[in-house]
Design a protein around this nucleic acid. Structure first.
Lengths: 192, 192
DNA sequence: CTTGTCATGTAAGAGGTTACATGATTCG
DNA sequence: CGAATCATGTAACCTCTTACATGACAAG
């Protein structure tokens, strides 16, 4: 998708400077971009050129001037149209699964160690998400909006929760050698 | 991560041409790249230059010549080192959650329609994954390897399954106006 | 005395995507 | 007769990332 819609969305919540938009994006997991300057500032310029946002320069003493961006009527309409457009499927890039694909090259202990490290990392991440969910800054204009943001946060916690359960299940299955039962005649000779 | 490890992994399973590696990657959800020519062929050249794979040219009558790549000892060692390296967290890019972030701009019916379309798409995808899991081509050199690949496939099915449950829960919550209970005094006036 | 914050911007590059080109063959 | 398969390769482009640059001020 286009990061411009994410920026438009944020500006539909609050008028902000590029610097502040960058912070919102960097701190968020939903807005999954790194929030680097290049992208934010260039896209703000593009949005401005197309009349989707307006720019107000605020001069400050002893601090650099800042440009506060606000969404326009056109911008709001563009955002609305995008909100109504067909949802895309989530894109999941799980490098660990690729690692696991070839993990049969490793010993039983090495695989379990790898899985243990993954479990640990997922566990840490899950705890961080749960803390973050409590103290996050979120738009809270209506009860419905609060509900939506709560469900979005829960979505991500639940994803890690499920991943944790899965990795535990995989380890358990390996420990109990669940895979032995379905032996076949093939042996392990291969024509490599 | 580096797609080169994915390619090395595939070659540790079978010696293949670039064309066939492309097919493996395109058809797979675990190997999440599009599998475009540029990437595959250039990376094979790089792997070859670094001595991680060897190349054997097969001339065919009435079909274009093909280059069969095989993994070398060095390549196998590089793959093994990567397999033992620290797992990365999954990267989830769920554009729908961004859409939902600003969905409070929509009417109740519009939000439900959006969620319904998402539910539909996830449902379709889930069914496709489940069919794919049965008829997929996978390395099957040991019982353990079959187990790992089964668990990887299950991981992805379960991710969609959970997403489906989540979206149904969100819709149900909106229908029952679960968000009303926690009204606050803020009203909906904001300083935009 | 260095590091971090505020605030904008530029530069360079990695990584990935779609599209095009070739040319024989096979399938509907 | 047009489209897909086999098989490799090139070109153009877009997105996103890290790193650098400025300069004043505050905090440890």
């Amino acid at each position: 998708m286009d990061i411009q819609y994410a920026i438009l969305g944020i500006l539909s919540w609050q008028s902000l400077s590029g610097y502040d938009i960058k912070k919102v994006i960097s701190d968020s997991d939903v807005f999954y971009w790194s929030g680097n300057n290049n992208q934010i500032y260039n896209n703000l310029i593009a949005l401005h050129k197309n009349g989707l946002v307006t720019q107000e320069i605020i001069y400050q003493e002893s601090l650099p001037a800042k440009k506060i961006y606000s969404i326009t009527e056109t911008g709001q309409q563009a955002l609305r149209n995008w909100l109504l457009s067909n949802p895309d499927l989530p894109e999941i890039h799980n490098d660990f699964l690729i690692q696991l694909s070839w993990a049969d090259l490793l010993s039983a202990d090495e695989i379990d160690d790898l899985l243990a490290r993954y479990e640990e990392e997922i566990g840490v991440q899950l705890k961080m998400k749960q803390i973050q969910n409590v103290r996050q800054v979120a738009p809270s204009r209506t009860a419905r909006e609060r509900y939506l943001w709560r469900m979005i946060a829960e979505n991500m916690s639940a994803a890690y929760q499920r991943e944790l359960e899965w990795v535990r299940q995989v380890r358990e299955g390996l420990r109990q050698e669940k895979f032995i039962e379905e032996r076949n005649e093939d042996g392990n000779g291969n024509n490599n």
